[in-house]
Design a binder for these strands. Structure first.
Lengths: 226, 226
DNA sequence: TTGCTCCTCACGTCACGTGAGGTGGC
DNA sequence: TTGCTCCTCACGTCACGTGAGGTGGC
């Protein structure tokens, strides 16, 4: 078993493990119960290692090399889909981490934790909402365009049109949050401390303008909206 | 504990687990030994969940929220590096899987397994060699250019110049393989069955030309090379 | 007799899931 | 009395790593 391990670059323990799983059985034993392997075993082990290197679970390798013999092509395609899903998940995670890291130097750890918490909450909510085929984004873009028109026209945030747009924006936010208070608070927190640089055509000045318009209608009109 | 689980979207078992790890201890118990949590516990749990969502191991979360208080920024950066490494690994794996899947339909499963094995072997060897800053690639490109000149000049693969180039190519292959027979065989196998589409300026016709030149010098000159 | 490889348990890893069997509050 | 939530073990997951304690061949 030592020679086989040496030849394949695996450990003796790994070979024992494979035998335990029924992946690779030694043909014979010596009088001292030492395992003996043949050429067929070596070839099989190379195959096992190759499939393992592709990230396939040992159980599936057992099926591929066993009596069930599912199509290797199908197995690979299924596994590729899993890898793609994992890549996407890690990619999203990476974006979150990069954002959080970017804030790390500027604020203290407690605020940073609060921001991470807000990001986590929003990301979770976004996941629940799933793909909505960009419809929501289109609505935000439209709102942004209208609001920007008001801003460049020099209308104050307290004017009628900006306030009407702010009301619609608030409704969109509430819809996104599913009515959850904490999620709304998280969104407000992120707007303040970690403005997303480019979201459906909104930039920092525009968001500031929106915040002012929102502030103008917040107190008096809140109950009427409900 | 049920309320807390409900509020945070975690399971009761998860909260028990965190308590077992010392991550979150219930302040008090009821007469029936039921756990009681306070506002501070709830906040702490939200922080735990947020950091967990970033993929941090629970033990590290314990340190961040515990008495050691390492800088959250540093922890995040370290973790980001880990995530990047994993992304890179998965990316390479994805390329391998995609190549293998592409061959799946055209050949039978045994040949496919052999090809996967060859890919695995070459990938492993490439990993051992590590980054060599593109020096090797430059040498291959140079060889390719010279050989292509011979080919377009109409020289037969058995001519002197192509054979000399083939000798140098063989030396490069042997160097890459570290002198390992099986790796050389794997390289030959891949050239035959799974020509890499674009590798340092080599295309399929050029490789075929090289193979012919190699065949011409293989038998007689092998011993002299050694 | 001394090393070396081999053998067979068996616990640990990581973040919980999943019963199993039992008890308190409505 | 009937459900419901809660409690405390404790095994299983995945692919092995890592001793622990013991035996055969040079």
């Amino acid at each position: 078993v030592g020679e086989l391990a040496e030849a394949t670059g695996l450990t003796v323990r790994t070979l024992h493990h494979y035998e335990h799983l029924g992946l690779l059985e030694a043909g014979a034993r010596t009088e001292g119960r030492h395992r003996l392997y043949g050429t067929r075993d070596v070839r099989r082990l190379y195959q096992i290692r190759a499939l393992r290197d592709l990230g396939l679970p040992l159980e599936e390798i057992g099926r591929v090399l066993g009596s069930e013999r599912p199509s290797v092509g199908n197995v690979l395609r299924d596994h590729l889909a899993r890898v793609d899903a994992e890549l996407e998940r890690l990619g999203r995670l990476r974006v979150l981490l990069a954002h959080a890291s970017a804030h790390a130097g500027r604020i203290d750890d407690d605020s940073l934790l609060a921001t991470i918490e807000a990001m986590s909450r929003v990301a979770r909510r976004a996941e629940v909402r799933g793909r909505d085929s960009g419809e929501t984004e289109a609505r935000w873009r439209k709102l942004g365009d209208e609001l920007r028109a008001c801003m460049t026209a020099g209308e104050p945030p307290s004017a009628r049109r900006p306030r009407a747009i702010a009301r619609r924006a608030r409704a969109l936010l509430v819809e996104f949050a599913g009515g959850d208070e904490r999620t709304l608070a998280a969104l407000a927190h992120l707007r303040r401390v970690a403005p997303p640089e480019d979201l459906a055509g909104w930039d920092a000045p525009l968001m500031g303008y929106l915040d002012q318009a929102l502030a103008n209608l917040s107190n008096e009109e809140t109950e009427q909206d409900e």
